[in-house]
Write a protein that binds this DNA or RNA. Sequence first.
DNA 1: CTGAAAGCGCTTACAG
DNA 2: CTGAAAGCGCTTACAG
Lengths: 337, 337
Amino acid sequence: MTSRTIAELSGVSQTTVSRVLRDDPAVSEATREKVLRVLEETGYAPNAWARAMRLRSTGVVGVVAGAVTNPFYPELVEALNTTISRKGRHMSLWVASEESEREAGERAALAAVQQGALDGVIFTTVTAESVALRAALERQAPVVLMNRTLEGLPCDTVSTDNVTGGRAVARYFARHGRRRPALITGPESVSTSRERESGFRDALQEARVAVAGAHIIRGDFTHAAGRAAMLTLLERAEPPDAVFCVNDVVAFGALDGAREAGVSVPDGVWIVGFDDTELASWAAFDLTTVRQPIQQLAEVGLELLLDRLADPAAPYASRRLPAEIVVRRSTGHAAAE
Amino acid sequence: MTSRTIAELSGVSQTTVSRVLRDDPAVSEATREKVLRVLEETGYAPNAWARAMRLRSTGVVGVVAGAVTNPFYPELVEALNTTISRKGRHMSLWVASEESEREAGERAALAAVQQGALDGVIFTTVTAESVALRAALERQAPVVLMNRTLEGLPCDTVSTDNVTGGRAVARYFARHGRRRPALITGPESVSTSRERESGFRDALQEARVAVAGAHIIRGDFTHAAGRAAMLTLLERAEPPDAVFCVNDVVAFGALDGAREAGVSVPDGVWIVGFDDTELASWAAFDLTTVRQPIQQLAEVGLELLLDRLADPAAPYASRRLPAEIVVRRSTGHAAAE
DNA sequence: CTGAAAGCGCTTACAG
DNA sequence: CTGAAAGCGCTTACAG
């Protein structure tokens, strides 16, 4: 069934049916009613692809996200989905289950843009190795970098103020007399771990608290990495009294590692995460962490993308959203920053 | 840039360009090379919508899923995404953040099918109230019900054998001398909770173990509901010695409730979930649970959908996949079933 | 082996 | 206010 069928059934031209469907005011009330009745009876729905082809716009926004094993991503994806729906568009998702698939997901999403299947894409997991992205940006692909960013690329970015977040944790440790801080961080090619780490280390230095080299462990963004790192740290001759983890899922692993090693949290060691995923507030973890404004990230990111689509020549924007420390039992319920 | 541009640049007809792109063997090697070179130089990508419109097939599979607050859904969505990609298609996702949005998500996905924006849809969260679905199925919409099902509808279904899963938990409780079992279950309009509950209760009865009416609590599928239910159960005059929760996220809430009430697990009470999400194996929970074969659900579900698209008139299939109990510390590391 | 042409189902100037 | 017609960018019989 096409608009032509509807036209025949209601005794008007296909043009008029199209007008009624688009709510064109240049249609008489009588004609409109006639067509609407047939539309109602048949339950006809116009073909989305034909429409998209004519309008050269699909209403679909692509999102490239990280795997479910880090609960931050499902939460971010859900916020994006809600925001995109609210703007009358639809989200198309590429999930990179493993780091090795990340580049493939990015390529697929960029190809979809080039094929006109997508209006634009939001990348949430870029790393310094995202090669295809650089090439696409030279062709002016409508891309927004969210969460993880890259310096000096011709595109819009939005992220949490990771440096300030890291600094807040360091100052919190220093103020509460923590003398042997440790850091479980992520790959250096990723902006989020670099920024959180540098904020944390700089503020510790300003507070004249030293971090032992052996107290810095670099791993990936998984529960298993956090657990392993924590077990290692607790075996040191001088184990840490406070551990800052690069994100929540690593902190959950660290908490589980401490539990297995029989070290009580917060009495034996403090643990802090980053993200404030929903799980962080569960009694099982009750994790002090730095809150990312997930809903706001989604909203600003989509806004940047829609602005970009509306005006491809506008200057590029970089937005930083505030991070806020949330104190819970994993650091002894101490007063908030 | 269109295929016509490529045709002009390589001195052949647009028809021939199209043939080269589709790898049509009826193109001479010389012509193919000439066109491929131009294709390479320009980085041209054919328009997805024009192609879909001609072929009347989009290569896009819709998925309607529940919110991230239940980690089972992100895991199922990720498995579906992987499976769908592997088959050379793409997933389009509708997430119902709240139960109230579920129907809206279903309607949107069905509308997308009717508009030809999707080849078919996999529903993972139908309930008895899914009205739009019934109407769509009368119009032969290509839909597969996964995870949650509905009886007597003209469509394919795939789900875990929830009844047997529930029975396994009951028999496990009975065999290990649990005398005061409790059940924290979900809405009656949802097949999964109905089935798990009935298997559990039937097998308890066969084992001559009584369940007190006060030991059955019905809530929704959230951490908060599990926690609240557990706190209520532990205040009873005769608190339960083993609690079966309708799914993992409810069990995580129950574990947190027990923790807050100062009741040790497993010494004071056993707790069992259903799903075997990744979190269940974390030391923080170490939850005995019934494993759903998530990857297999995704594979069978997609297979059913692709078969349906290939042959709309084929008889409807209902597949049940085996459930398996996984024993962990929340029931004292007892030997596996 | 190659190309001119029809057609997928829409939107929108253009003419009346 | 309404309709005939062009055209979005492809695929594929059909003819040569």
